[in-house]
Design a protein around this nucleic acid. Sequence first.
DNA 1: GTGTAGGCATTTGGCCGACAA
DNA 2: TTGTCGGCCAAATGCCTACAC
Lengths: 409, 409
Amino acid sequence: MGSVEEKIKTAGLANGTQTNLLEEMKLLKEFQDQSGIRKAINSELWYACAGPLVSLPQVGSLVYYFPQGHSEQVAVSTKRSATSQIPNYPNLPSQLLCQVHNVTQHADKDTDEIYAQMSLQPVNSEKDVFPIPDFGLKPSKHPSEFFCKTLTASDTSTHGGFSVPRRAAEKLFPPLDYTMQPPTQELVVRDLHDHTWTFRHIYRGQPKRHLLTTGWSLFVGSKRLKAGDSVLFIRDEKSQLMVGVRRANRQQTTLPSSVLSADSMHIGVLAAAAHAAANRSPFTIFYNPRACPSDFVIPLIKFRKAVFGTQVSVGMRFGMMFETEESGKRRYMGTIVGISDLDPLRWPGSKWRNLQVEWDEPGCSDKQIRVSSWEIETPESLFIFPSLTSGLKRPLQSGFLGDTEWGVW
Amino acid sequence: MGSVEEKIKTAGLANGTQTNLLEEMKLLKEFQDQSGIRKAINSELWYACAGPLVSLPQVGSLVYYFPQGHSEQVAVSTKRSATSQIPNYPNLPSQLLCQVHNVTQHADKDTDEIYAQMSLQPVNSEKDVFPIPDFGLKPSKHPSEFFCKTLTASDTSTHGGFSVPRRAAEKLFPPLDYTMQPPTQELVVRDLHDHTWTFRHIYRGQPKRHLLTTGWSLFVGSKRLKAGDSVLFIRDEKSQLMVGVRRANRQQTTLPSSVLSADSMHIGVLAAAAHAAANRSPFTIFYNPRACPSDFVIPLIKFRKAVFGTQVSVGMRFGMMFETEESGKRRYMGTIVGISDLDPLRWPGSKWRNLQVEWDEPGCSDKQIRVSSWEIETPESLFIFPSLTSGLKRPLQSGFLGDTEWGVW
DNA sequence: GTGTAGGCATTTGGCCGACAA
DNA sequence: TTGTCGGCCAAATGCCTACAC
């Protein structure tokens, strides 16, 4: 670590050319990583916990920030929607073009809930951007070696261990020495907080099955896992075994922080964005993928393709991806039944959830009845999947649809 | 409960005279209390947990709200002070005259940390007030029957129970039947969330002492108490035994909520107050007495007495009350060494912490070096306590000083 | 292929007085 | 007066197979 400090000092003494400044920042990051001030989270594990549909924007790229979507996230967290007490910010547009300055992945110390912090700088136009080095932050990468299991009563009871699905154990865990009687090994895995857990992995019983025994109950107790919560294992790019958790939705109750009233939070979101927009100064947001109804930071490319690339109209058919219970993807089909403002008073002309839709399947009452155009797939991209419009049966050649890229068995 | 609903409907049908409106509100409150939507917290227990120096303003009364103080509370919660990214709100004065519309006491479901929610309405002048019924909310009342103990390693270990200080057991617990061998009874106490706990109270050992055994470990585990945390018992006005907890300061780490960035929270506080001030519309705040450096909602009377009643000057001696470890009060002495703006750029002329002070005792480095005039006692109120200026020895006739009113043994 | 239950060894929890600070 | 310890028994944890579904 000392050597890095040395390097920083050396770089700092050099003349402040652009190259040297970048060099300095790079070294600073290296220093921070080593000193553990802000230990970088394992990105792939973060994405695995976030689910197959989540991706974060690239540092330096251009995005549209949607205050309405951000406000919706606050509403979910506080369980209170914006009220009429919230002032209008006439100078804050419904979509704010920003350059992404910084993206960091985090996880709540208590609940392990994942979230991201981003720093966004409003820009006047595409030409207004400044090259930002991304210090090697990889583009969104979902792990290819992955499995996720919803915990049963037996898995979480103090009476026993964890029953590992066979295919998961065979795909992810190091191979057992089956000449042993019984075959057993010690698994050492790390979580999002870089905490190390040790599990005894054994293959026994009649019929034979894979189990995690010693060490498992400590994990369950420490993470306060209950039946219905999920646990997931991945192998990252370095082939390291890691473990993550996902709480059942019922438990998602992010409690009211008792720091700020819900109204003040809504005001804070809008006022911070308005101030940043007026001054072209960066502002910081949190994005909670699993709590938030929809992403509210949309890459410019994606936005353009959806808004200018396709002409949506009432009656048009579309598909939209959702996450399955086993953390796979599944497409649901629907029809656009209207195009109108979600909030005509506050945000006239906004593209945020301006499409009213109806879903083909009856069990979709939990799904949004309003979506934004960049969330859906329109006929141009769908014409090759005519069989999908039924939507009820699982497609046979699922590989063809690209939803076996990861996480689906 | 149905009958209350009936009454509400009836009241609602009546003509909307002022009396009927109040009647309606009163019934609504009754209904909410009964239905448990927002179960009222035991006020005395709340005050016991808050500590001897905390008091909440009366509903309907006039107060000054200090945005700076509110911002300080946010800074403590988020561990980030307001940065230069925070816009100025030139129309928001450093002190905002408000009428108190609503005060509710709360406790965090997880940590039991107490906090209050208040609704404040900015008013132009004292004449601007509207009579608000307080629905019988009592003025601040600290329980007279009270004790507080910091938990030892033995108290929190799984190996044993809780050792009750003799005087506490004798003062608060129902008298034991000392003819029993050994004397024992069952204590049923409730906490801030109205949860009932049952403890076996026994008097045994050599030498004899009071202990809580069966049921205690469940309480410790459930509240996640550690050695160093405190537990307190009170008898409320109905003479009911209740139990509360206070976390050690080290554990006060209210984690960053991951909902809003610290900057947005600071902006939210100021923007909400500014908007409310401009529109004379009510706004809602949270007050965390134990996390917050100083109260930022000051009764008009108290403010007046301090600001207009006394002429403070550099060199003046003063006293100020602090909480002791055992939840008593203790006066520390100091000298005013300067009068100046805490933040000359943002809040010029503000009365918030505009007094720079030095403390008599050397071990006071943890204490604020800036205070507001309403926090201190000036010579007029101190001339009768000349012996106190040493400040080091415990005054003998402490009753005379009024600091045995409660909680000090 | 995997969830749950019964059997049983081992560990932890928890009530007691002794002793010391 | 009260914090911690060793002793001792009871309750729970946790590893195993058997038996469903």
